[in-house]
């Protein structure tokens, strides 16, 4: 059996919020689960994230937002990827996201949203089931 290419995941922190505990824990968990993980660091604009995702040829982008700016920043990343013809890169997210916003974000192309209390096992399982290496 030919060995599948490892999944490449970009974990990104858009916006001004500095809460990186969750993003880092998720990034390390995905890496320990055998994926290649790139972490952007904090304070990224959607444009910076899109550029990194395209340059690094990732399979998915995970966005972490704790500041309440998710309704603006998450769709901006989805749209930015589309504008670059990179709509095959799956976008998922996590953070303090009220239930009422989740449906709207999914309509705008965010594939999955993970809220407080989610286990990293669940995130790893979702990525394995829903993201395919290119």
């Amino acid at each position: 059996m030919a060995e599948e290419r490892k999944l490449r995941i970009l974990v990104a922190k858009p916006g001004l919020d500095g809460h990186d505990r969750g993003a880092k824990v998720v990034a390390r968990s995905l890496r320990d689960a055998g994926m290649e993980v790139i972490y952007t660091g904090l304070h990224q604009t959607p444009e910076m994230i899109v550029n990194t995702a395209v340059q690094e040829d990732v399979d998915a982008v995970g966005l972490s937002i704790m500041s309440g700016a998710h309704n603006v920043l998450m769709p901006a990343v989805v749209k930015g990827l589309e504008d670059k013809g990179a709509q095959d890169i799956a976008v998922f997210g996590g953070g303090i996201i009220p239930d009422d916003d989740i449906a709207d974000l999914k309509n705008k192309g965010v594939k999955a949203l993970f809220t407080p209390g989610t286990s990293t096992e669940d995130i790893i399982a979702w990525v394995r089931a829903n993201v395919k290496p290119k």
């Binding site: 916006g15 500041s67 309440g68």
Partner: peptide, 9 residues
Amino acid sequence: RSLGEVGRC
């Protein structure tokens, strides 16, 4: 850079 963040947290 403030877009979406004003008054949020």
